[in-house]
Every structure is written in structure tokens, then in C-alpha cells.
Design a protein around this nucleic acid. Sequence first.
RNA 1: GCCGCGUUAGCUCAGCCGGUAGAGCACCUGAUUUGUAAUCAGGGGGUCGGGGGUUCGAAUCCCUCACGCGGCACCA
Length: 654
Amino acid sequence: MPASQSAAPEVAITLPDGSVRRYPAGTTGMAIAASIGQRLAKDALAIQVNGKLTDLDQPIAADATIAIVTATQPAGLDLVRHDCAHLLAHAVKELYPDTQITIGPTIEDGFYYDFSPKEPFTPADLARMEERMALIVDRDLPVRREVWDRDEAIHFFNSRGEHYKAEIIADLPRGEIVTCYRQGDFIDLCRGPHASSTGRVPKAFKLMKLAGAYWRGDSRNEMLQRVYGTAWASEKDLKTYLTRLKEAEKRDHRRLGREMDLFHVQEEAPGSVFWHPNGWTLFRACETYLRRRLEAGGYVEVKTPQLVDRALWEQSGHWEKFREHMFTAEAEERIFALKPMNCPGAVQIFKQGIKSYRELPLRMAEFGACHRNEPSGALHGIMRVRAFTQDDAHIFCTEDQITAETIRFCELLKTVYGDFGFTDVHVKFSDRPPVRAGSDAIWDKAEASLQQASLAAGLSLTLNPGEGAFYGPKLEFVLSDAIGRDWQCGTLQVDFVLPERLDANYVAEDGQKHRPVMLHRAILGSFERFIGVLIEHFAGRLPMWLAPVQVVVATITGEADSYAGEVRKALVERGLRARLDIRNEKIGYKVREHSLAKVPVMLVVGKREAETQAVAIRRLGGNAQETLALGDALASLVVEATMPGTSEGATAGA
RNA sequence: GCCGCGUUAGCUCAGCCGGUAGAGCACCUGAUUUGUAAUCAGGGGGUCGGGGGUUCGAAUCCCUCACGCGGCACCA
């Protein structure tokens, strides 16, 4: 250390590897990075000082533990995306100066920026914006942080015609430091940090899509134009991401639904599914499976009417709280509604006769077809529809039984998800919504009991405030699919309200009438959505017990036709869904076709197999073949195709 | 519901400045009897989403409705 500088104050900087270096007080991240290496100085985007991310040019006054952040680290990548949002806004202001800018946060895999343009953007504008962004990177403009007086900032942005920005600042809590970042002529309100110059942003971004978005996310506000982009540390990462998107597109259930001939939708029945034979087979396999699990789980099954007089919905509260989602029909001067939920129907069954406490808990399942008039913009394939079948059940029980029933349900749900190949599940707890039925006292009780039961069931919950059903709080079970997307499927809701409104009661040990508690619960949620999730999760390659066609017996030559017929018959007799392909085509053609149709198993038979009573097994996805004696092949396929939860020795499901 | 975009043969898509519709796959017919992801040849098929308008003339331009797609808002 040079003696001449010993008088100047120094700071001790601890690097990520634990080493300590001394720098003059007031040094910057940039200086530190430069002292470590040229490469680091070039790649540096920001610095973490005692865990807090800041700009490279911020002076460091005291001893600190630091880390130089580059695009290869998560915090650095996030910063790149944030920089890209600014680049985009900068580009837009240059190209379309009378556009107002609003907000531009980072999101998973990228960023977006919301604008209020004079003329709506078109997809062609995206290319222009992207080009301009690259140009601004090339200019390598310095990016400067500025601290502004709040009122001056408001005045400044207003004077520039940036009224949204001014509004944001005006809404900042008093006392908050207002910082802006300036690059060239562009200035934006921003907390930062940012890279020190535009040239440091890797040119690995792409503007992806144009969308509408409400100002401040409120549908009562004006609609802004949102530009979505993706950004990565390198062009290679960008390419990997774009490939991933393409792969995800191939799993799209709407595309696979058509390719696998499972279902279709058409404009005369928006939001309703036409199930084709293949798709309906899959639907029924799910239903059969679930029915077995429910029977084993102590449920009874019922069926309640589709079309019910308005009077019942008024009594249940649906007419008041759910009216806009209900389809109605008029006949005989009465108004009927298609049921949007099964619960009121279930209560009617409960109310028949006198129930004793001895009958509780009464677990009443229904594969109920519900209709809800969802907003047109919400419809999506078979995942979000207007007519759907819930794997619904209502458990009528006492307050004391809530905990045990919750635990029991969670176990069942875990088993079912596991059988379908989902192991990654998390749970959200939704409490009272603004629009609700029932008193606060009842809600207090319902929320407390559900929370307590969740605790007892060992669930770890994330809170989802204000998202409960109008009649009670709920647990929402969210599963993650093969490519990491989340789907809300299962639910458990505690309801003290409907039994009251619909006057359900049972006779307790004291000989008096008491109110039961209702637990609304579903595991799949709706068959339609769940099947959509299954298709995407497995990319169409359904496990054998679910596959609409489990086996195709394909011949190589006409000489094997009659033997192939016998093989198929033997499969069908053992409960397998098997088809015969004796067309006059080459085997390669047949293999390709059935592979594209995602049939899990092909049994190829030619002259050799016919003579030796054998089959050549070819599995989807592989190109290996195994020749087995017919009997052995049948035995192993039967095991493979067996539905989970089927007792030993039983054959595969319907 | 809101914003933007789209709708052409069963599917995927082409069709430039308005001149009267095309490809590949699929389908049908014939030939081929084939050994693990496309055998060859021929053929049929579209009031260009519905309605209205501009024009001598509209798949193409304009208006409108429906549906779809991407988001937002809403939600199983």
C-alpha cells in the first residue's frame, strides 16, 4: 500500500470470495470492478453493497461486503430486463413522440411497458421499436441517476405531457426520494438501479407481443397499449428461450386436441366442448378412476337437476351474488337458471327426510355439469369454458369434524394427483371477498376453522386475500405441470352460510336440530380444465391407462391379417382399448401415423410373428422393438394399462 | 367485457398496388404385399366467417356482426 496515501480515508471492501481489499473512501463499483479485471469491468452492470443492489457509480463511503453483478446472475438478468424496458420506452418516445409512457416492470423471462399512444400500435411497429432499441444500445449513452424534488418532478413530467408519470409520483408517499434515470434525451421516473450506459445491455432481446392493459390494472380505467418483450444475458439464451416457447406451443391442448381427434369447439356453442370418441374415452377414464377413489373414500354419488327455478337461487344467494354469470331460460312464465354450481342441489338432497348426527359426515359427490356465463375474453380452449363438469362433492358435517375431513380430503387429493403424475402441488388460502354472504362473525369462524384444519393437515399456505367464494373461505390447490406452469385445480371451501340460507339441519345427540357445516370440495376442479392440463403436461403422450387408444395391432403383410385380428380380440377381451391396422400400407407409414396419434403401444405382426404366435412391441417415443410370445405380451400390457386404484387382478378400466 | 390482431379446401398456409383462387398434407381411385416415423400415379374438393357498402369489377378497400388468437380485467 503506498505510504503517501495512508492519510486518505480508506474503506475495506470484502469480495464474494472472502478476500478484503482496501479502496479510497468514496470508491465506486466501477472502480472496484476495474481493479479486479478488465473483463469484469466490461460486463459489470451493478453492484451489490451489503446485499443491496445499486448503481456502479454510487460512491461507497464505508466498509462493505460487495458483489459485482453481471447479466449471468439472476439479479443482473433482472436488471438487464429492466434496462430493456427503458430502452423500449426510449425507442417509443423517439419514434412516436406524442405517446405517453406509464410503467415498465420486469416479469418472468422479460419485461413489458405500458404506453398511451395517440394511434394504436400495430405489430409492424414492434419491429421498428426493436430496431431502434438496438440503435440506442449502439449509441452507448451514459445512464445517469438523478434525485428530484417531488413537486418539481410532478411539474416536470406534467409539462412534458407525461401525465401518467406525474400521477404516479403524486401517489408516492411523501418523504420518498424521487429518482429518475436519464439516457440521452430520455428521462424516466425509476427506482433503479440501471447499467451505467445503454451499451452494456446485451443485444439479446426481442419484442414479443402487443396487448391491451388497463391503467393500474383496473377495468374502470382507460386501456393502455402494452408491449411485451423478452431479454436474456446472451443471444444463445434468447434462442434457447424461443425454442422453449416453440416446444410449449407443440403441447398446446387445442392443437393436440385436434391432432389426436379428442374434441373440438365451434362458434355456435362458444365455450362448450364437442367431445369426440377419443376425447370422451379419456374423459370417461378420468371419471371412472375418480369414482373408484371416491367410493373407496367413503363418498356417495348423486345427480341434481340442470335447470332450476330462480326461487332456489334467490334463496341460496346466487341470484344476488352470482347473477351475471348465470344463464337463464323462461318457460311457463317462470324463470329457470342453468346451475352454475351444484351446492344448492346437494343441499336439497340432504334435506330430504330427517338427518341424524349419526349420518355425519355425509360425503355427497356429484359429477355435476355446470354452466357459467364467463366473459367472452376469458374463454380459452377447454381450459376456460362456459359449460364444464366438476368433480364436486359436499361434505355435510359438524364443526368438530372439519379438521378430520380436511386432513382426509388432502390425503385423497394427494393420492389422485400422484396417480395422474403430478407431485408438485402448492396451496393457497383465500379469505373473505368484498362481496359475500353471511355475517362477519360467521366468516371469522369459517376462516379460523379452515386455517386450523390446514395446519393440522400439515399444509403450508400462501395467502390469497379477498379471493374466497361468496359463501366461505377456500383452499386452492395449484399444481405445476411438466414445463413448470401452474394450474389451479382442487379446492376446499368451508361454508356456514348455505346450510343456513337453505335451512339444512340434522338432529344431534341432544335431540335438537342443528346446522351442519358444508365443505365444498373438488380435486380435478373441472374435467375439461384438468384434461387440458393433462394433455399439456404429457404433451399428448398420456399414460397407458388414460390413452384413448392403448394399443394398435399393425400388420406388415396381408398374410398376417387374420392373426392380427386374433391378437386384437385377445387384447379387447382383457379390457384393453385396441385397434387393428391391416391397411395395405408399409409398416413405416403405419408406425409414423400411430406415433403422431400418440398411441402408446404398437404391436407389429408380420409373417414371422403369425407363424410363431408372437408380437413385436414398439413403444411410443422409442425405436426399439421387442419380440415377445403373445401370452407374455398380453399379460404385461394388462398390468401396464391398469388404472391406478384398481384392486388386484381387475382389468383395465372402461 | 376491454385493447390489438386474425378468419381462404378437412389441416397448415400462399394469394403483391382491386381483374374473378393456389400449394403441401389429408381424402377418394388404381397400382404396389411392404419388417419399424411419409410407396408411386391419377382424381375430387372452396358462394375466400356472416351481412352491408364503395367500384365496371372485391378474397383483396370501408362499415358491421360472430367466432378465434394474444393480453388486460374476471375465474374452475
